[in-house]
Nucleic acid binder design. Structure first.
Length: 836
RNA sequence: GUCGGCGUGGCGGAAUGGCAGACGCGCCAGCCUUAGGAGCUGGUGCCCGAAAGGGCGUGGAGGUUCAAAUCCUCUCGCCGACACCA
């Protein structure tokens, strides 16, 4: 794809070539992005500009964007975070960092299989690799530079070999296990889903499809072993968005409470263990509730109640997740006929079964305290169960409760703890429970283990075999990768795949036919970039330790929990295994907003995407890059607007003219006289502002500062300013500062100015506070907080001097109206407020 | 329901305790032009006023402060996450 191929018909009227050729001020050259963009892309590629050297003496900077699923052509909705990453990489390079800016593809996954099913004969791999080729071409057309030598593609055997290796590491460390479990099953994708992939009881990929419950033997990763550290270490991630940390905190869902055993009445030695976060309400338990799936349901149920209980349990199991989890439906349940003894007061309380209690959380059974829990209250009212108040609000005991009282207060009806403040009582009661052997303190997490089995073809096969003699046997490392069969068919149907021999006894064995969740692939790809061609290990520990952690990680907020939590988990496991020094993968995280058009997120399916070909053929990649950075705050969703893009085209054209044809900008009678000192100051200030704002990824305001500088430079020429060394320095600084956003145009201008070497290799300007300092400032004069006048004063004026100057002004005296200022607030170089 | 975020001109937005509206789009007037979705100049929050000038103004109400878009309380609206987790 070279510039000569661009269809000229794409060139719109905006194109500078369409400007009047017989202008009164003929131009020597015009800005034609189509002529220069392919040229520089070629140069950068040939010179390997973004190749990261492992042995560089420079400080490293690891700049990473989330690797995408390759779904086809890119459009400007995808481009936004890649441009951010590229701009940062380019600036960091110029600042003297050895930048690692790699790219890759999250290439396993269902869309490839869906495409293959829709087009018989099309293999998921071909579809995927074709898409990768197109996306890669688009990225290059946008001038986005990566170290393509480090490209990783998760569906290729040289990558998934190591995904399988990491699975075996998990297995070895006791972090991978197989269990029969009621699992979430998507009837459309015909696969099991992780909890994280179930949204409101529906499949994350099919918002209109309810997830079903099935009992299957599945592989899990024990992420819950790391719950505490995943939670605690969030405190280290002070450069992550607050929102993401909060979402992960909530997802992990740590709670503190107590587990208490309630003996079953009449069945010696049997007891039901409950978990409560409110041991202070133990005396208010008036019944118990077990989840329908609780293993003791059958035992506690009496003959008289058995038929009804069985019917209820059956019904509950058949219900879909969405039916069971809906909070607005009325709670249902049945009495078992059995009773338990409340161990704190010996009271006999009935045991119920109800589906509002989840078998998967806590102990699968609760003590119900209707007086102080909304759900128990609702249930008690419905089934006419007793409500016993044990926490009195500050206003005193209520006697009859209309609602559950959830707050803290004074304990009542609670034997020896009566009269205590309930928050104080928490610890004392736990001590007492432990000393009596009734119960103990417990910490619970909402986080569940990670279900990673997928009944799909297009994923990394789980590297184990099942042998009639030896049971489950891991595939030895030297036999990795377990390759997918070439033919695209469900793995259980491919006998040549699953029929194998046991690595231990050599007898006939059956290979595991499940593949891994693709979130496993993406939980370690950022480590592979450190040594992408290493064929002895997933990553070279020395190189990984050199490049890790990622200094800047940029991607969509939709991965706030899934990908980011899993990656943190993987890194901690690798750290514990002694393979990695880092214990957190991503030092600074940024979630960019989405690009919308016509009110909808840009998407192929919505038909509102601005394609890379369209953009580069018309306004050019640089205009698209600058526009997407200028369009709005980087973390916000933004609306693509064609006239906004045109504004940026005009800005680039103006810079082009300022830099290459300053003589065409002639003094205007109306313009203020040029002042070289003013220009010098403006340049210095812009260096400071732009550098700082790029660093913070606040590209929209960075562009505004660059526009201000261009405006100031134009004013300077119109004011008759000389095009001397001062001017030349300003021009070069402008090009360096604009380069990360409009690299092709700036590189071309740099060359036309006669500079040797690439602009991308030039050094970043350093901020000089002395040069940037304003010698004179406008001092705002307020009287009683209202602006009454403004003074031009020397910077650094004393309070006394400022007061004197202010009081000398007619407007100020008029506002004071004869009164003396009783108080003066002076903010140097900014404001003086005289309060009468 | 719970938690979180956000409400600023005609529009995108800037300002995180110190001149509200930077920068840009759009619009108005003028210049240049055979022509203009080109370029250049000036203007552009609202109200009163010929002007000078004055008043009002950051969803709404209150508060803290010499000073509030910014901090606090309440409230309305929009967006997002979680959603019976005991």
């Amino acid at each position: 794809m070279q510039g000569c191929c661009w269809p000229r018909s794409w060139v719109t009227n905006l194109h500078p070539l369409n400007l009047n050729p017989v202008s009164s001020r003929p131009r020597r050259s015009v800005y034609v992005p189509q002529d220069i963009e392919p040229k520089w892309q070629k140069v950068w590629a040939e010179r390997g500009v973004m190749k990261a050297a492992d042995d560089s003496p420079k400080p490293k900077y690891y700049d990473l964007v989330m690797y995408p699923y390759p779904s086809g052509d890119l459009h400007m909705g995808h481009a936004r975070n890649y441009v951010m990453g590229d701009a940062l990489a380019r600036m960091k390079r110029m600042q003297g960092f050895e930048v690692l800016h790699p790219f890759g593809w999250d290439a396993f996954g269902l869309p490839a299989e869906n495409a293959a099913m829709q087009h018989p004969g099309l293999h998921p791999q071909k579809w995927t690799l074709d898409n990768i080729a197109r996306s890669k071409r688009d990225l290059k057309m946008m001038g986005i530079l990566y170290d393509w030598d480090r490209e990783v593609t998760s569906c290729m055997p040289d990558y998934y070999k190591w995904t399988q290796w990491l699975f075996l590491l998990m297995l070895e460390r006791g972090l991978a296990y197989r269990a029969m479990a009621p699992v979430n099953w998507c009837p459309v994708d015909k696969t099991v889903l992780a909890n994280e992939q179930v949204i409101n009881g529906r499949c994350w990929r099919h918002p209109d499809v309810e997830v079903e419950k099935r009992d299957l033997e599945q592989w899990f990763l024990k992420i819950t072993d790391y719950a505490e550290r995943l939670l605690a270490d969030l405190a280290l991630l002070d450069k992550w968005p607050h929102k993401v940390r909060l979402m992960q905190t909530n997802w992990i869902g740590r709670s503190m409470g107590a587990e208490v055993n309630f003996p079953v009445d009449g069945i010696a030695g049997e007891s039901i263990r409950i978990y409560t976060t409110r041991p202070d309400t133990l005396w208010g338990a008036t019944f118990m509730v077990m989840a329908p799936e609780h293993p003791l349901v059958e035992r506690v149920t009496t003959e008289k109640h058995r038929a009804r209980v069985r019917e209820y349990v059956e019904k509950a199991r058949k219900e879909t997740e969405i039916e069971r989890q809906s909070t607005d439906r009325e709670k249902t349940g049945v009495a078992t006929g059995g009773f338990a003894i409340n161990p704190v007061n010996g009271q006999k309380i009935p045991i119920w079964v109800a589906d509002y209690v989840l078998v998967t959380y806590g102990t699968g059974a609760i003590m119900a305290v209707p007086a102080h829990d909304e759900r128990d209250f609702e249930f008690a009212v419905r089934y006419d169960l007793p409500i016993r108040e044990v926490i009195a609000p500050p206003s005193g005991p209520q006697g009859v409760l209309r609602h559950a009282y959830l707050g803290s207060g004074t304990m009542v009806n609670s034997a020896q703890f009566g009269g205590l403040d309930s928050t104080v009582a928490f610890d004392r009661i736990c001590d007492w429970l432990e000393s009596k052997g009734i119960g103990k303190r417990a910490v619970k997490y909402r986080l569940r283990d990670w279900l990673i089995s997928r009944q799909r073809y297009w994923g990394a096969p789980i590297p184990v075999v099942y042998c009639p003699n030896d049971g489950m046997v891991p595939v030895p490392v030297d036999q990795l990768p377990v390759k997918l069969p070439e033919e695209y068919r469900p793995l259980p149907e491919v006998e040549s795949f699953w029929r194998t021999t046991c690595p231990k006894c050599d007898g006939p064995a059956r290979r595991e036919t499940d593949t891994m969740d693709t979130f496993i692939d993406s939980s370690w790809y950022f480590l592979r970039y450190a040594s992408p061609h290493d064929d002895r290990e997933p990553f070279d520990p020395e190189l990984a330790n050199h490049w890790m952690a990622v200094d800047q990680y940029t991607g969509g907020v939709e991965h706030a929990i899934l990908h980011l939590l899993y990656s943190r988990f993987f890194v901690k496991v690798l750290h514990d295994a002694g393979l990695l020094e880092a214990s957190e993968p991503f030092t600074r995280l940024f979630n960019q907003g989405m690009v919308k058009r016509f009110g909808q997120v840009m998407a192929k399916s919505a038909g509102n995407g601005v394609s890379i070909a369209e953009l580069t053929g018309e306004q050019g990649a640089d205009a698209g890059r600058v526009y997407e950075m200028f369009i709005g705050p980087p973390e916000e969703d933004v609306e693509w607007n064609d006239s906004g893009l045109n504004g940026v085209v005009k800005f680039l054209q103006r810079v082009w003219r300022l830099v290459l044809e300053p003589e065409s900008i002639v003094p205007e009678g109306s313009a203020a006289a040029a002042d070289a000192a003013v220009l010098r100051r403006k340049v210095a200030q812009t260096v400071g502002h732009v550098t700082e704002h790029y660093d913070e990824l606040r590209f929209n305001t960075a562009v505004a500062f660059l526009m201000e500088l261009a405006n100031a430079m134009q004013d300077y020429l119109q004011g008759g300013g000389a095009r001397d060394g001062e001017w030349d320095a300003a021009v070069r600084t402008l090009l360096k500062l604009l380069n990360p956003l409009a690299p092709h145009a700036c590189e071309e201008m740099w060359e036309r100015l006669g500079e040797r070497g690439l602009l991308v290799d030039a050094s970043w300007p350093t901020f000089d506070a002395t040069l940037a300092a304003e010698p004179k400032v406008v001092l705002v004069v307020q009287v009683a907080g209202k602006v009454r006048d403004k003074l031009d004063v020397e910077a650094g004026l004393s309070e006394a001097g400022a007061t004197k100057a202010a009081l000398a002004r007619d407007k100020v005296r008029a506002a004071l109206n004869g009164r003396e200022p009783s108080k003066v607030i002076y903010v140097a170089d900014k404001l003086i407020n005289l309060v009468p």
